[in-house]
Structures are given as C-alpha cells and as structure tokens.
Design a protein around this nucleic acid. Sequence first.
DNA 1: GGTTGATCAGACCATCTGGTCTGTTCCGAA
DNA 2: TTCGGAACAGACCAGATGGTCTGATCAACC
Lengths: 209, 209
Amino acid sequence: MSRKGEQSRERILAAAKELALRKGFAGMSVDDILAAAGVSKGAFFHHFRSRADLAAQLIRWYAEADIRMLRTLVAEAEAAQDGAMAQLLQILGAFEAQLRDPGTAPRGCMYALYSYEEEQFDEEVRALVAEAFRAWTALFIRKFQEMIDAQPPARPVTAKALAEMFVSVIEGGLILQRAHGIPGLAARQSAQFRGYLELLFPRPPQAEG
Amino acid sequence: MSRKGEQSRERILAAAKELALRKGFAGMSVDDILAAAGVSKGAFFHHFRSRADLAAQLIRWYAEADIRMLRTLVAEAEAAQDGAMAQLLQILGAFEAQLRDPGTAPRGCMYALYSYEEEQFDEEVRALVAEAFRAWTALFIRKFQEMIDAQPPARPVTAKALAEMFVSVIEGGLILQRAHGIPGLAARQSAQFRGYLELLFPRPPQAEG
DNA sequence: GGTTGATCAGACCATCTGGTCTGTTCCGAA
DNA sequence: TTCGGAACAGACCAGATGGTCTGATCAACC
C-alpha cells in the first residue's frame, strides 16, 4: 500500500470513528463518512470491501492504538517506579490525565458502542471486542496480583475482580460523562477507584519527621 | 385510548426496546419492529407520529418503569431496615438479585444506548436521559448522605461521588457482561462496590458471643 | 340503526443507502 | 519512455426505509 493510499485509509477510519462515537455505527451512512473524510465512494470501496468490512477494520485499528497506549503507560510506570502500588498509581494518574486533557480525551469507548450494537456484527468482530477487553483487564490483573502478593488486602479480593471493577468504572464513567455533558466525570471515577485501592492496601505507617 | 390501543402501543414499545438493546436504535428499522411486535405499519404510525417520536416515547416509557422499580426497592428497604447502612445493603442486594435472575436481568441499559447514539436524538430526548440518570443518582445520594452523617467515612468522600461511582460501576458492568457473555458480571460489580462501602463505613466491632 | 372516532391493514411512494462499474490519474519499476 | 497496477472519481442501480393515504373494522353512544 502506497503512502497516499494508507493516508486515505486512515482518514476514512478516523472519520468513521468520530462519527460512530457520535451517532452509533448504524447511525452513520457510508455517505456520511465520505463527506467527513473528504473522499469519494470509489476510494472508500477500494479500501473496504463493504460496510461490514469497515466495521471489522475499524475496531481492529482502534484496538491496536488503544492497547498500544495502555502498554506505553504501563511500561513508563514500570520504568519510573518501584513496587506495584506506586506503578499502579502512576498508571491510573497518567490515564486520568489523558481522560482530562481535551486534546486526548476520548468521546467514548468503541468497545462499549460495539457491545451495545452487537447484533449488527459478525462473530469475528464480537470476538475482537471481547479480546480487547481481555487485554485491558489482563494488564491490570497482573499489577493487582503483584499488589496482593506484596501486601494482603484489607478485604479478600481477587486481582481479576479489581481489574474488572476498574474497567467497569471507566466505561460507566464515560457514559455518565456523555449523558451529563461533564468531561471530567470518567477521570473522577478513576480517582474514586484509587481511593478504594488505598483503603484495600493501606500504606504502612511511615516514620514521621 | 382504549384498552386494545394501549395494548398495541405497549407491544410496539416492548419490541422496540428488545430490538434496540440488541442492534442499537439506529440498527433497527420500523419494519423490524412491526415484525417483532406483530402489528401493521398503519398501527405503528397511528401510535407514533414518526421514528423520532418513537425514540422519545420509548425512553420515556422505559424510564418510568425503571425509576418506579428503583423507588420500590428503596421503599421496601426503608420499611424493612433501620439505619442507612442496612437499608443500602438491602437495596443493593435486591438490585443484584434482579441483575442475576434470568427473568428480570436486563439485556443492557437504554440510557447507555441513547448516550452512545446521542446525535440521532433531539435535545428533548437527551434531556430525558440525563434526567433519568439524575433521578438514579439522587436516590442514592440521599442514602449515602444519611450514611456519612451517621458515621464518618474512613476516607473523605461525598455522597454524590459515591452515587456516581455506583451508577458507573453498574453501567460498565452491563457492558462487560455483554462483551464477554457473562450474565452475572454486573451483579458482581455491585457486590464489589458493597465491599468498598464496608471499608468506608466499617461496622463498629460487635460483642462476640 | 346510524353515526362517529379510535384502531388498525396494507398498498403505495419518494428518498436514501450500500454497492457496482467504468473510466481516469498517478507513480514506481523495467 | 513505457507499462501495469494501485488509487481513486463519480455516475448508476436495485433494494431498503420512513412515511402517507385510503379504506376497513369495531365498539360506544345517541
């Protein structure tokens, strides 16, 4: 694929993502995408065999960038901090910063959208969504397990339950944030979750000076 | 509106709800609804001026039943229990039971769906969704405030933050539950949230016997 | 028994939509 | 310089879709 061709493809995917997060996947027509991306119908069907093919490529493209971002946050935290708790707090903090920054704040989560419109998509696409969620939780499960191993939680919890709760709280926060038009709401949910973590894993009383 | 007319209207709304929660609002056509509800096009457009009118009536109808259900749970808990904590635990417990029971478990939340497809709807419909969320959180804010007044939390939190977190965790749980095909996931999120509450408001050590 | 309005049934229509097809442009390799 | 395929541009089409309209049915009420 030439440079130009790849550019068009990205333009289409980016436009489709924006539109889908505003009107739903079924709520946007191919013509809508063409207008938003500034490409012709010929270009579109050159890069995508069909609308269903767009759905598959879109979620794949979105998930790649998404997972890459998360992995970066984790790697940076692991490089900068010692100990699972400090790393987790940095990961969550960096994530909240992205949620708050108007430049990077997402309009919503594509996985959530696809989940709510699931019957439009075939088994392969649904599997991609489930796999993306699994990748998210897997990264957090690892970290939470390290924490539980390092320090017994104040209440019996599993790493998996904590990871699922974090993802839930973010997904739910994104919905509330849209419904109320309050951009910072999802970030606040993440902060609340940190509060839960601090109660679960209280810092050992440090020497005061 | 005669008995028969009202019945048809309900059949249409129920079918539309089911379909919307499976394919998204934009993902279902009027003909889909007709087939699912077993009514004619004439019947449909007798009860609904347009597709947009269906959207408005549907969310109104859904929200009415939803808020009524929540109010019932709260009233029952207030009648059966003394103290905000005991009432809250009963409310959450009853709610989790509904989430788990295959007979009453929702396929998803209509507010979430409407939020993710928001640009399809006019300002009035979006306001209805926001208002529904507000009604949910308002009920919980009251209860959480009672708890905070009765017992200082282990960490400084506001009643509003707790209420928003609960709603978030449920909404997110419903999404994960769909994506993974695990019916009990949302209920588990509510249970996790109860764990958070127990850490925030630890029971005073009781006399053991 | 006749009238009236609510409640439909379903043919019909204009528009929209996904997708096809033909022709054109452009760019790198030979 | 030529040539072949990638990368479009946009007219075109068949079917789907939202919505209209005419007429039928039926219960209630005078």
